[in-house]
Simulated scan of single mutants.
Amino acid sequence: MRQSALNRLLTQAFGVFLGVGIAVWVLRGFGILTFIPGGVIWLLLLGAIAIGIINYAQRTWWRF
Rank of each mutant, 00 (worst) to 15 (best):
W62E: 03
I36T: 05
W62P: 00
R8M: 10
P37V: 08
R59S: 08
W25Y: 09
L10V: 02
A50F: 12
L46W: 09
A48P: 06
Q3W: 00
W42L: 14
I41V: 15
G47W: 01
L6A: 13
V16W: 06
L27Y: 06
Q58Y: 13
V20L: 15
A13Y: 03
L33A: 12
N55S: 14
L18F: 05
I49M: 15
V24G: 10
F14T: 08
A48N: 08
A23F: 05
A57N: 14
F30C: 11
I54L: 15
G19C: 02
I49K: 06
G31F: 03
G39W: 09
Y56R: 14
N55L: 14
V20K: 11
R63V: 08
I36K: 06
F30N: 12
L6C: 12
L10Q: 01
V20R: 10
R28N: 15
N7I: 11
W25F: 08
G31V: 04
I51S: 01
G52H: 07
V40E: 03
W25L: 14
R63S: 02
R2L: 12
L33H: 03
Q3G: 07
G29I: 08
L9I: 03
T11K: 10
Q58C: 01
L18W: 01
L10G: 04
I41P: 07
L46R: 04
S4L: 13
G15C: 08
F64G: 01
